Amino acid sequence: MSSILATVGDTFTTLAQIDNPIPEPPPLADKILQFVRYFTWFALMSGIISIIYAGGRFAWEKWSGGSQSPKMVAGAMIGGVVATSAGTIMNAVLSI
């Protein structure tokens, strides 16, 4: 019984001596970050193109009648907000 308690005590002593580890980037982190930057650029460009398209369609529907373009503009705006704030959202979720 005393050998078990001694082992548990040694384990806790060893664990108490471990310092806070210093985080370091994983292998190929620069390639992953480059891919994330490309994806962010693509998401922003697709949002800009969709807003331009929806604006043109809005003008066309104003002239010819219709009501689909306000939904397209709202969808593009909401998608842009979510795409650009994804990093902030993930930092908030993961830092809890």
Rank of each mutant, 00 (worst) to 15 (best):
M45R: 11
M1A: 01
M77Y: 07
T14M: 01
T84V: 14
I18M: 02
T40K: 14
Q34T: 13
F39L: 08
S64F: 13
M72A: 00
M90P: 01
V81L: 08
G80C: 11
D10N: 05
S67Y: 02
F12Q: 04
P27C: 03
M72Y: 06
G9R: 09
G56K: 09
P27H: 07
G56A: 13
S2Y: 04
T88M: 14
S67A: 10
I78T: 08
T7F: 07
I49P: 09
Y38D: 15
L94A: 00
V82F: 15
G55E: 05
P23T: 08
G47S: 10
G47K: 05
W63L: 14
A76N: 04
I22M: 12
K71T: 14
A74W: 13
G9T: 03
V93L: 15
M1V: 06
P70C: 08
P27M: 07
M72Q: 03
A16L: 02
M72I: 02
Y53V: 11
A86N: 04
E61N: 09
I22R: 13
F35G: 05
S64P: 00
V36P: 08
V93D: 10
W41C: 05
S95F: 06
A16R: 07
S95D: 01
K71Y: 15
S95H: 12
G9L: 01
M72W: 08
Y53M: 00
L28M: 10
S67W: 09
K71M: 15
V8G: 02
F42M: 12
W60D: 09
G9Y: 00
G56I: 15
W60F: 10
F35A: 11
A54N: 11
Q68A: 11
G79I: 06
S2E: 14
I22K: 15
L28P: 03
V73P: 01
F35K: 08
L15I: 02
L94D: 05
G55W: 03
G79W: 06
S95Y: 10
T14D: 06
Q68G: 08
L44D: 00
W60C: 02
S69N: 08
L44N: 13
S50G: 11
Q34K: 12
G87A: 05
D19Q: 15
F58Y: 11
K62P: 08
I22V: 15
A43R: 14
V93G: 09
G80M: 14
K71R: 14
F42Q: 07
A59Q: 04
I78G: 00
M72E: 10
G55P: 06
Y38M: 13
T84P: 06
I32G: 09
S64G: 00
I89H: 05
E61W: 01
M77W: 01
S85E: 09
S69D: 10
S3Q: 12
M90I: 08
G65K: 07
A6G: 05
A16H: 01
I18W: 07
I89R: 05
P25K: 12
S50K: 10
E61G: 03
A6I: 12
I49T: 06
L44S: 11
V8N: 00
I32C: 05
G65S: 04
A43K: 15
Q68P: 01
I4F: 04
T11W: 11
M77L: 04
D30M: 04
Y53C: 05
V82S: 05
S64Q: 15
D19T: 07
Q17S: 15
G9A: 01
I52T: 08
A43I: 06
M77T: 10
T7V: 04
